[in-house]
Amino acid sequence: MTTEAHRQDIDSTGSNGTRVLGIAALIAMAALALFGLVLSPADANQGEVVRILYVHVPSATVAYIGCFLTTIGSAVYLWRRSRWWELVAYASAEIATVFTSIVLVTGMIWGRPTWGVYWVWDARLTSTAMLLLLLLGYLAVRRLPADHEVRTRRAAIVGLLLVPNVIIVRQSVQWWRTLHQKPTLLANGVGAKIEGLMLFSLFVGFIAIGLVFAWLLIHRFRLAWLEDQLDEAGLDVAIAERRAEGAAS
């Protein structure tokens, strides 16, 4: 039985540390559901819809953190040739993509009852959508069917420019919108003052989503590291595996 458990231990991206982290993340997510959906009151203006923000706002924050990690990782890789940082950049870009999609979808769901439409050409929405496209561009380069060195080097250039691009896009979109209308739509939404249990629920949201982000990042990093090792060892091993599988079935 012990050998069985041991084997499981080796053949995965998990470790004792991530297991503890994972359990903590699960507990925090359960607490978030409890506070966000049950204990916290409905908002005076927004009603029940405010509960979407407990997952929406923290997701946006970790998405931005992921983007910064991508740019930092790409910069360190280009500067020091650090494989480790390159993998951090790749792993956090993929996770940032997941969270950016979540932000967009939950934001649209929040917008429907609040504004009456799923989408408005608001500065924040538009720049988040552009951020998703920029991330998809990075991932497309990183996953190119090309030589390892080619892939990582080119992706690092794209990743390095990710945050500057986001800043410029945000600035331009903000000017673009404010020329036509003041961004009043969000003023009675996120900006409204929150306190008591609602604030605490949002706080739980930050912790829970943050833990999930950390857990995902470690696992995704290890997966990327394994892929890297496999790349390095050449395709022969993988081909041999496939052959063995084919022969067995």
Binding site: M130, L133, L134, L136, G137, A140, V141, L144, P145, A146, R154, I157, V158, L161, N165, I168, V169, Q171, S172, V173
Partner: peptide
């Protein structure tokens, strides 16, 4: 140049460039 020399360059370049050129 990021997209150059690859089989997918015709499709990759617009995906990379157009969001960046939005501003």
């Amino acid at each position: 140049v990021v997209a150059a020399g690859l089989r997918v360059r015709e499709t990759l370049l617009p995906l990379l460039l157009l969001p960046v050129l939005a501003p």
